[in-house]
Simulated scan of single mutants.
Amino acid sequence: MPQPLVTIICLCYNHERFLKEALDSVVAQTYLNLELIVVDDMSTDNSPAIIQEYIQKYPQFRFISTGKNVGNCKAFNMGWRASKGEFVIDFATDDVLLPDRVEKQVEAFMKSDQSCGVVYSDAAYINDNSEHLHYHSQKFKAAPDGNVFSEVVGRYFICPPTMMMRRKVLEELNGYDETLAYEDFDFWVRSARNWNYKYLPEVTTKRRLHQHSLSQKFYSSEGRMLQSTIRVCEKAAMLVKKPSEKSALIKRLQYETRHAYLTNHFTETAQFLKLLREQIARPGIVYNLISILNNKQIKLNAVRDLYLRLRYGK
């Protein structure tokens, strides 16, 4: 049986420090039937020169320049729309693939039925110097299979760079929503409504944590990231069908309300509170108090810092 074609879309924006390690990990894959596309989102460092080196050395790489800085969602869409793979990986070039990543995930897809739209896995987190920090499964131990819609609405548990997506899923969704500042929450909500997920309990990817990564800017982006989260929660509200799914959405809105308020995003806090009240008539004493404090724009930085220390050890 011929191997299905897998597309790895390598997204680069100012990843000069990490780019060679990332692209080397793509070249080192044990799976052979690969389509490799590098999309550079108008990097201002030495990334384009490094990419050109790899294109000359490895002609299997195709190169796309976005022409102007367009952000992750649009840059990825440019890559996958130019691709042909039956399965697709969204790979940021500050991360690292383990050599058998593609091989193991294709095998997992082949063992699943056609309702499986996404295979995801455990990941190892690394720092700027590629030193090990911890495993994703140490902090997010429950990794469900099958219908995960309620789970993705209610909480974070998938490490985004570990995903391999069936092309049909992306086609059904018309790719990522390019109006959003980030892609993963929206993709999970929209795809999990109609497709099953499969968890592979192995480390396939090294995810890098550094000060310039998108995940580190979530609550410090002048509200852009939170505005996208509000948009996705609105979509989720239209997609819920069962009481358990509505409960998951309420849980998400409560979480986002707390964090938006404690990071002094007063406009976004009010928007989350509005969505919360649309789902539950009496949101409770805590959220009524947050509403009062938020209207007066009272900052509780000390409470936020204490919460982060107790909850995350920061």
Rank of each mutant, 00 (worst) to 15 (best):
D184T: 03
L289G: 02
F91I: 00
V26T: 07
N77T: 02
P48V: 09
D90N: 13
Y255N: 08
C233H: 11
D94C: 04
H265K: 01
L308W: 07
Q279K: 06
P99D: 11
E268M: 05
R277G: 06
L293Y: 00
L98D: 04
D177H: 12
G146D: 06
S137F: 12
A49G: 05
V38C: 02
P144E: 08
G284K: 04
T267I: 11
M165W: 03
V118N: 00
K274T: 00
Y125W: 08
R17M: 07
V39R: 09
R311D: 07
W188G: 11
W188V: 01
Y135A: 11
K235F: 03
M1R: 14
S130N: 15
A123M: 01
V26E: 01
R101L: 08
K141D: 14
I290D: 00
H259M: 10
K139N: 12
T267C: 09
V88I: 15
D95K: 10
S83M: 06
I50Q: 08
N72L: 05
R277A: 08
V88M: 00
M165G: 06
A28E: 15
W80Y: 15
L306H: 06
W80Q: 09
W195Y: 15
S191R: 04
K20E: 08
F157A: 03
F18I: 08
I64D: 00
P48K: 11
T66W: 08
R17K: 14
G175Y: 02
C10L: 00
P59V: 11
K299Y: 03
V118G: 00
Q52S: 14
D177G: 06
F157S: 10
E35L: 04
K241Q: 15
A302Y: 01
G85Y: 02
N301H: 04
H210I: 03
N33H: 11
G79R: 10
K111A: 15
R258Y: 02
R252T: 11
Y199H: 03
E278S: 09
N72A: 06
S220F: 14
N196G: 06
K68V: 14
I290A: 03
D186S: 15
S83P: 01
Y182K: 05
A108G: 09
G146I: 07
L308D: 10
S130W: 15
K299C: 13
H212F: 13
R304K: 15
N288G: 07
R101A: 00
R166Y: 03
R193T: 11
G117H: 02
L173Y: 07
Q254Y: 02
V286R: 06
L289F: 12
Y312K: 07
I89V: 12
V102N: 03
Q3S: 08
V152F: 09
I8K: 10
P99I: 05
V152W: 01
K111D: 14
D122E: 13
K111V: 11
L32A: 13
A192F: 03
S213H: 02
Y58S: 04
M163S: 05
F18M: 00
R304E: 02
D113H: 13
M42N: 05
R17N: 12
Y261K: 05
R166G: 10
Y182L: 03
I292Y: 14
Y13Q: 12
P4V: 11
H134S: 03
G146V: 02
A236F: 08
N129C: 13
R167M: 01
I9F: 06
P161L: 06
N33Q: 08
F91W: 07
F63L: 12
